[in-house]
Amino acid sequence: MPTSTESSLLPPDLVTRLERLELVTRKIFRGRLKGERRSRRKGQSIEFADFRNYVPGDDIRMIDWNLYARLEKLILKLFLEEEDLHFYSLIDASPSMDFGEPAKLQYAKQLAAALGFIGLIRADRVKIETLGQNPQHRSSALRGRRSVWRMIEQLETIHANEMVTLADGIKNFCLRNRGQGIVVLLSDLLEKTGYESALRYLLSQRMDVYVIHVLSQEELEPEITGDLKLVDCEDADIAEISTSAPLLARYKKTLAAFVSGAQEFCTKRGMNYILVNNQVPVYEFVSSYLRRKGLVR
């Protein structure tokens, strides 16, 4: 996979490490194709799961004849079903994501690439979408290790120029994708109309929702001085401030309230909320934060 290894989104050392991981979901989804995923549903694989009595209509190939010889009872031997998983990365590509070093959008793309890579190598169906994507334009699902380069290509075409509200973006996503699976929303949630109504759209889908709240170091710990005219990059709104310690303290307090509000909103509704600073290395975030949250193992 020369493309993936050369991409800045998936550096080779990251690829090596990610190969050990796989995506997990707590919910039971019916995959469309057999995948490499051990489903919680019983099915056909070589991995033994359980025994149960035969009832008419069962596949007689599953009957454990050795048990029948010993007990003279028809006992079915159940194996774990291996199936594929739908994994969606929903990236907020609004101009506000173009801030920070690295830019929040770049960070979000790296995360999406990493998670997508894990999905692809485990034969899951991976879809990369952005909030500003046309509702009619369905992006094709990627599957298999060979699709990694296509995923990277797709990610690299994403730029922070989509002027769409969070609510509209998610609504359109839900219209496009009615299936089940894992959806990871990568956004800064800086939406003046609020993120709540937008996230509610996701709840309506039977999806395992991960909200990864990407914020830059400059937003978490602003280092600005003097009398400033802050200009909003999306709507050119202006806020005049004179920096001072109380103001900065108040900003941090407001930010903390905003973050805890989002976390509470998500947790109450069964969504997973994870705040990430763009300074945290991608692999560390995936292997540590997301593993703790149960998205990968």
Binding site: P95, S96, M97, D98, F99, K104, D188, L190, E191, K192, S216, E219, I224, G226, D227, L228, K229, L230, V231, D232, C233, E234, D237, I238, A239, E240, I241, S242, S244, P246, L247, R250, Y251, K253, T254, L255, F258
Partner: peptide, 30 residues
Amino acid sequence: RQPLEVPSTYLWHKSIEDLHVNSLWQRLRK
């Protein structure tokens, strides 16, 4: 004031809402 482009003024507006209560005192403080 020096203009500075930020991702969003959303949090800043929320932060300075309280500080704008007494604008004369604000001016003095500035």
